[in-house]
Design a protein around this nucleic acid. Structure first.
Ligand code: MG
Length: 322
DNA sequence: GCGACAG
DNA sequence: ATCTTGTCGC
């Protein structure tokens, strides 16, 4: 499901002389909270004018931004040329608001349905795992670059895999998995049975289906979510360096504190208990970020350099011993 | 008007 | 996540 392509298609439906809003497009996509992402996608519009992103404005009628050397003045010029009046820096939405979008599917509705089904498959009991894996991604334009660090049974980094692929989904809070999982799927497939450490939440998610859970269920392997900031949940302090994180009175994860401030939030993804997720994380935590994820994040930068230098090509696996 | 939402 | 140079300190 190519959300980028869908957004560009929706914008092409806006007739000359009309405008729509970021929120209206987001609603058409199935979640008003994707409105910010709509703006980010339009900011990278590869074919301005053909895809008339200048016809998308803020919900109060103000113009918003325009990624062009002349900035938003260019947006105003284009709109005026098309017959859209701009008074006091605003368009009159009552006069020229377009909202009659034609689309076959609302991706974020589909995503929510999918998350519901995934969440029913999550097992929160301990399962055996052979060794540990850490995963992270970076981005270069529309390309995601993944680094997968595989540890040996003794806990030493053994090798790193790199992989890059074009993204189809922009980042929208609570839908992270739909952006990142397609990129790591190919390089993670054969690692079933490893304990995955992922850069995002597990069951510490409004629909109990964060990225780490999504990955764990898809690969049918134990997984832990290690996030740098909180998505949802209530903090209940336990001690100097630990707090429980609750979602309606249920312990969904833990916050680990270093010197008075939270360093990471840990929650089980799949095939592990909340307690074991915390213990396994503490075992590999030397610095602020646990080793698996920390190293993956580091290699992600090397991967990006290789990608820029054409040493790492799209949809081509690259593996390096450590 | 303020708060808030992983990466 | 990305943009982006230097600086302070262990
Ligand atoms: Mg990341």
């Amino acid at each position: 499901m190519d959300v980028y392509a869908l957004i560009y298609d929706l914008v092409r439906q806006i007739p000359e002389g009309y405008v729509t809003t970021y929120g209206a497009i987001a609603k058409a996509l199935g979640d008003i909270r994707a409105s910010k992402a709509v703006g980010e996608v339009l900011a990278m519009n590869p074919t301005p004018i053909i895809v008339p992103c200048h016809r998308v404005v803020m919900s109060d009628g103000s113009l918003g931004g325009y990624t062009h050397p002349e900035g938003v003045r260019k947006k105003a010029e284009l709109l005026r040329r098309e017959g859209v009046e701009i008074i006091g820096g605003k368009v009159n939405l009552k006069k020229c608001f377009f909202n009659d979008f034609k689309l076959k599917i609302r991706p974020f509705e589909v995503f929510r349905d999918y998350q519901k089904r995934i969440s029913e498959k999550i097992r929160l009991e301990d399962y055996d795992f052979s060794a540990i894996v850490g995963v992270d991604l970076t981005y270069n334009g529309r390309y995601g670059i993944a680094a997968v660090v595989v540890f040996d049974e003794k806990g030493n980094p053994e090798y790193v895999r790199y992989y890059s692929k074009k993204t189809l989904v922009p980042y929208v809070p609570t839908y992270l998995a739909f952006r990142e999982y397609p990129i790591i799927e190919e390089v993670s497939r054969d690692l079933r049975g490893y304990l995955f450490f992922l850069d995002g939440h597990g069951i510490l998610h409004p629909r109990k289906c964060g990225y780490a859970s999504h990955v764990g269920v898809e690969l049918d392997t134990p997984s832990i979510g290690v996030a740098k900031s909180l998505l949802v949940g209530n903090i209940v302090i336990e001690s100097n360096n630990l707090a429980k994180v609750l979602i309606d009175d249920e312990v969904r994860g833990y916050a680990i504190y270093d010197k008075g401030r939270a360093s990471v939030y840990v929650s089980p993804g799949h095939k592990i208990t909340v307690g074991s997720a915390l213990r396994e994380t503490m075992k590999v935590k030397k610095y602020k970020i646990p080793e698996p994820t920390r190293l993956a994040h580091y290699y992600t930068k090397l991967g990006k350099e290789m990608f820029k230098n054409r040493k790492l090509l799209p949809e081509r696996l690259l593996e390096t011993p450590l």
